[in-house]
Every structure is written in C-alpha cells, then in structure tokens.
Design a protein around this nucleic acid. Structure first.
Length: 512
RNA sequence: GCUCCGAUGGUGUAGUCCGGCCAAUCAUAUUGCCCUCUCACGGCAAUGACUGGGGUUCAAAUCCCCAUCGGAGCACCA
C-alpha cells in the first residue's frame, strides 16, 4: 500500500484523525532537544566539571557548547567546577585551570560561577559525618581485591556493621592523615546484594599520600571520590540538570543512595556518547597528547597536528564554528564521529568575507617572463584584494624578470596559462612569453587561471598544517598582514598569520 | 561472568515517547552543471539510510519479542 492509498484508507476509518493531521503546523528548528522538566525549576542550572589535569582537547568543547547554548535558551546558570580531587593519578596541572577558562571564553561563553572541589574538602567531610550519623557509611580496611571478591559474591565487608562511633573516630583519623594510601576507606552503605555489582557499597573517601599541587589543598590526605564529591556539590550548588558522558551512566544510580540518605531530590540527568574526530592522526586524549609532547613528537598543545582547542584556535578557527558543530551532534547516547569538515564548513562561512586574498606558491618552479607577441609585458600584476569587495582595492605584485608557480600548474610547452591579475603567457623553451591581457582566452578558450609570485621579492612562509609543515613563497604584500589576520591563499586555503620575522613568516593552515 | 545503554545515507541529525501528512528532514561530504581572472563564495542538480527476522495492526522508522552488532560500568581515576 503506498502513501496515498494508506491515507485514503485512514480517511475511511477515522476522518477526524486525518483532519487533525492536516491541521498540525510544522515548526521544528533543528537544535538541541528541550531539557527535561525545565519548567519545573526556577533557574535551570548546569555545570561543567572538568578535571584540570591538562589542556582541553576538541572533544571537551562539547560540554561548554551545549551548556552555554542551554543557558541562553533557558536564561539559566552555568557553573564551572574543577573536579580536582585526585592529586595523584589524575594530578591537576596548575596551568590548566586558567587554560580551560580561556578555552571556554574562546568558545564564546562566560561561566556564572567557578569553583574548585579542592577548596571544598571541609564541606565534603561535614556531609560524610552526617552520613555516618545516619548509618549510611562505614570505614573499611579491607584491601581492594578482597572487598571486590566479597562484593562480587554479594557478601558484606566485615566492617559493614561497625558502630557509628567507631566509624566516626576512624574517619576522623583518616582526615587527620593517620592512615596511608590503601589502608582505610570510607564506603557508602548501599545494597550489597544489588543486582548491579557496580552499585554495591562504593568508596566515598580514600587516602592519598601525594600532596595536592594547589598550595591551598596541599595538606589534605583524605580525598573524596568523584561520586561523593560531585553528588554533594551538585545539590549544594543548585544544579538542576546534569549532562555527562556514558562512562558515568552508573554515577546517578550510585549517587541516588546518597541523596536518599540526605533526603534530597536528584537532578535531571542526560548522558551522551563519546566523540571521535576524523582528520587527525593523533587521538583526542589528554594523556596521549601529553606523551607525544613529552616525546618531542608534537611542539606543544597548540601544535596544528594536535586535536586541541588551542591548536584550532591558532589555526584561525572561530569558537563559533566549533560550538555549532558540537550542537549539531545533538544529545544522543551513541558514540559519534565529528567530522572536521563540518567545523571547516562552519568556519569558512564565518571568515570568508574578512579574509583577504594572497598568492602563495609551494615548491615553486621559476620561469622567466619574456616579451612576446602580445606587446610589452607589464611590470606588475594587480589581482583584487577580495573578489567581493572592490572597495578593498587591488594588490600590486611586482614582476621583475621571473615568476614562481606550482609544478602542477605548469602547462605543457607550447600551451598558455593565465597568471591571475597579470595576463596570459605561453610556455616556451625559453620561459613564459607574454601573449596579452585579452580575457577571452580564459572565458572562451579555456586557458587555466593560476596563482603565482615574483621569483625575487616574495616572502618565505612556513605553513604549519595538520599533516606537517610546508614551505612556500608568498607575494610581497603578505608582509603587511598583521599577526592573527586570517587570509586566504588563493587556490590553497585559509590560514592564520602567526608570525612575521626577517627570514621567514609563519602561517597556520586552517582548511581549504 | 554480572549490570546498564544504544543502532536512520560516508558523517552528523530530524522523525520514535502519543503508529497514519515518511516512497523519511536538514546540514555536511562526494560528483556534475552554472557563475567566476581562485579549486573560495554563491546558485542548481545528482548520489546516498530506517541492522536483520518474527509479531501486533487497516497501517510500523515508530509498539512488542528474538537475533546480530556496538558502547559503558562492575577502580582506593575523573
């Protein structure tokens, strides 16, 4: 049955419904889905909770992009909370706190509040004591492996039924640093026979011997685990909507036990899958990138080959281009591939209008310019600064005796080619013979238009790309661009001017 | 092993909750054409998907079951 037939059948069966379908208006814009139960809260509040153990990679941009977008939609609140409660395994990098805040700003968002978990230990301790009073936690000195075996068998730890007074004094001793790492933990009493083993009596606090890198937190030895710390903070800071990765799918379930003890309502939760990037050879992972930098394989976090926020920023990609791409990924719980071409397409739209045009030749082949049958060869080429902005004028590119062109553009001997903004030349054994400026050669006879630079006065440019560095020669006027300008090298692509120096300029390649 | 979650074109996404306007949206990608003194921008067109099998129903991308595939957790990481 085809659509028309089905429709006719429907009208026979239920004319009212058919009419109703006709009446329904179509509105939907393709944006993020509405937040669940948003109307039930006075102020939609969300938090990004990064671990500041290093600069952000591109995947990290998703959280501020989405939260920032929801904040705008609901006139909500955006908290950044650094979950820096592991001074050892995921040791915070002191520079990363501000670096992350910079990245968020680059993406175009401003947090309403910035917190550090490592400033809030006393608060976590207070709540732990409260939990202990309620009989919801116990100190446990079982080695991890032993507990794990019991847990998997659904058997309780022998410490589970300690008197609250004992638990209290042992937890005080933990806070006082009287135990070393591994000797004692505080566990939340959940349900030791819960069918999901991931939820059984999880660890709330453990001992860490390594001092926290932040001076303000360096004396603490008893540190909360993510599920405890985050659970307490989300409630205390009024978070209404938690957005997090599927790796934390069980967190809400664990934390609900805590909320139950405290009589709190658990926020709304959304999960999303992992983001993978195409285009890059380097995996988007803080530790992988760090290793490559340490090994000298990457120059730093802003190396164009690194899939980091700093890197795309240096390449002249606007924060908005990334945000829009992230929003486009939606909120699905499946793993997704972000194709960089989406980011590039977004960015091209943002920068094309501003980017002035320049010629740059890679692997230049030098050809002398010779007088020919077309009359006197001009002494300069004058292509427009921007094809859609006549008011920006024309570039003046001097031609002395010879030009450089890219090897692929070299026509066969005897054939013509049009040097853009200059005129038509014929490739002869002796060089390029000027044949005139009659544009009909291009329009009607199909002569290729190519870019070129003078052999003598051009500027050496190092172009740093995602696939490694390339060298080229840019037209003299390129020297007048300012650092941070985004330009288009005609027929090559967009790039950000990074540095001008006597010997060589540096540009970071963005995309075609 | 136990427990959760998911599956729409190359990629992302809309539609799935409440089955019919869905021979499936939009973007990106790729290709072709037009425009053009850039391979940019712009315009037009083409390509291309409901994981599979059962069931329910007048009607299934949508509901149910099974299978397959994929992801996540079971840390004294976040």
């Amino acid at each position: 049955m085809d659509a028309t037939a089905r429709r006719e059948r429907l009208e026979e069966l239920d004319a009212d419904l058919a009419a109703e379908l006709d009446a329904e208006p179509e509105t939907d814009e393709h944006t993020l889905p509405d937040l669940p139960n948003a109307a039930e809260y006075d102020e939609v509040t969300m938090r990004a909770a990064p671990n500041p153990n290093g600069p952000w990679h591109l995947g990290h941009a998703r959280m501020p992009s989405v939260i920032g977008t929801y904040k705008q939609r609901y006139d909500g609140r955006f908290i950044v909370r650094f979950d820096d409660t592991d001074p050892e395994t995921k040791r915070p990098d002191l520079d990363a706190y501000d670096g992350i805040l910079d990245d968020i700003e680059y993406l175009g968002f401003e947090p309403d509040e910035v917190l550090k978990a490592s400033d809030r230990l006393e608060t976590y301790y207070d709540h732990a004591f409260e939990l202990i009073e309620a009989g919801g936690a116990y100190t446990c000195d079982l080695p991890g492996e032993e507990f794990s075996e019991l847990k998997n068998a659904g058997e309780p730890s022998p410490n589970r039924d300690k008197a609250p007074e004992t638990v209290r004094s042992e937890f005080e001793a933990m806070i006082d640093g009287e135990y070393s790492a591994g000797e004692m933990v505080l566990r939340v009493k959940t349900d030791i026979t819960h069918k999901n083993p991931a939820l059984r009596d999880w660890v709330a606090f453990r001992m860490i011997d390594t001092p926290h890198p932040r001076e303000a937190a360096a004396e603490y030895r008893c540190w909360p685990m993510l599920d405890f710390q985050s659970g307490i903070d989300d409630h205390l800071t009024g978070v209404t909507h938690i957005i997090r990765g599927i790796d934390l799918q069980d967190s809400a379930k664990r934390q609900r036990f805590l909320y139950e003890y405290f009589g709190w309502n658990y926020p709304e939760v959304l999960h999303w899958g992992h983001v993978q990037l195409d285009e890059y050879d380097v995996k988007a992972s803080t530790s992988t990138i760090k290793e490559l930098i340490d090994a000298g394989d990457l120059d730093g976090w802003d190396d164009p080959r690194a899939p980091t926020i700093q890197s795309v920023r240096r390449r002249g990609i606007r924060g908005d281009a990334i945000v829009d791409a992230m929003i486009g990924l939606g909120m699905s719980t499946t793993d997704v591939d972000l194709s960089m071409s989406t980011v590039y397409a977004n960015n091209r739209e943002l920068i094309d209008d501003d980017a002035n045009r320049y010629f740059l030749v890679r692997d230049g082949v030098e050809k002398p310019i010779l007088e020919g049958p077309g009359g006197d060869a001009p002494t300069a080429g004058t292509p427009p600064v921007h094809p859609e902005h006549d008011d920006r004028g024309r570039r003046e590119i001097p031609v002395e005796d010879a030009v450089l062109i890219e090897p692929d553009d070299l026509p066969a001997v005897g054939d013509r080619v049009w040097l853009k903004g200059y005129g038509c030349v014929r490739h002869t054994d002796a060089g390029f013979e000027y044949v005139g400026d009659d544009i009909s050669a291009v329009r009607e006879e199909g002569v290729d238009v190519i870019h070129w630079v003078p052999a003598e006065e051009s500027i050496a440019v190092q172009i740093r790309t995602i696939d490694g560095d390339v060298r080229g020669a840019a037209e003299p006027g390129f020297a007048e661009t300012a650092v941070d300008d985004v330009v288009q090298f005609e027929r090559i692509g967009f790039a950000r001017v990074d540095k001008h120096a006597d010997r060589e300029s540096v540009a970071y390649f963005a995309h075609r």
